[in-house]
C-alpha cells in the first residue's frame, strides 16, 4: 500500500502499510538513518523527529497519522558542508559521546528553540526530559542547546534564515 509523506520538505510516496511506525519508514524506506531505534516503545527519545514543529516519537507514531503533515528529521537541519545552527552548536560543544541519543536530542531541542530561541536553561532541561542519554553527555548537550539558541537568535536578529 502506498502512503504519501512529506519529509524534510520533500513529498513522496512510500510503499508501506499505514500502520507502520514512522521510524521504520524513515530508516528502511527513505534511508534517513538519523533517527535511532532505542527502545521502540516511546521511552527513550532516540527516535525523536518533528511533525509540524512539534517533537514526536517516531517509533510509536504510525504513518497513517501523518498524511499531509510536515515531518523533519535531523538530516533536514543542515548538511555536512553547511550545518544548521543546532548541528553547528553540537559540533562546537563536542556534545556527543556515542552519539546515539543526539539526533533525538537535537530534534526535541529544535522544536523548543524554533518557537523561542531565548528560553532559559531550566526550560531546556525540562523540555529535554523525555530523552535519555546513556553516556552521561547531558551537561554538554544542555550547553550545546543553549548555544544553538544563541545562534538561532542572532541569525533571526540579522534577518538570516535558519
Amino acid at each position: 500500500m502506498a502512503v504519501t509523506l512529506t519529509v524534510n520538505g520533500k513529498t513522496q510516496q512510500v510503499d508501506a502499510d499505514p500502520e507502520t511506525p514512522l521510524l521504520y519508514v524513515l530508516r528502511d524506506d527513505l534511508e534517513l538513518n538519523g533517527a535511532k531505534y532505542g527502545c521502540g516503545v516511546g521511552q527513550c527519545g532516540a527516535c525523536t523527529v518533528m511533525v509540524d514543529n512539534e517533537a514526536v516519537l517516531s517509533c510509536v507514531t504510525p504513518v497513517l497519522l501523518l498524511e499531509g503533515r510536515r515531518i523533519s528529521t535531523v538530516e533536514g537541519l543542515g548538511t555536512m558542508e553547511k550545518p544548521g545552527p543546532m548541528q553547528q552548536a553540537f559540533i562546537e560543544q563536542q556534545a556527543a559521546q556515542c552519539g546515539f541519543c543526539i539526533p533525538g536530542m537535537m530534534m526535541r531541542a529544535q522544536a523548543l528553540l524554533q518557537a523561542n530561541p531565548t528560553v532559559d536553561e531550566a526550560a531546556v532541561r525540562a523540555h529535554l526530559e523525555p530523552n535519555l542519554c546513556r553516556c552521561g553527555t547531558h551537561m554538554r548537550i544542555v550547553k550545546a542547546v543553549m548555544r544553538a539558541g544563541e545562534l538561532m537568535h542572532q541569525s533571526s536578529q540579522s534577518g538570516g534564515s535558519t
Binding site: 499505514p18 500502520e19 507502520t20 511506525p21 516503545v41 516511546g42 510509536v60 507514531t61 504510525p62 497513517l64 497519522l65
Partner: peptide
C-alpha cells in the same frame, strides 16, 4: 481501530 492497533496496542 487503525490508530489503536498501530499506536496503542503495542503496549
Amino acid at each position: 481501530e487503525a490508530i489503536f492497533l498501530s499506536a496503542c496496542q503495542g503496549c
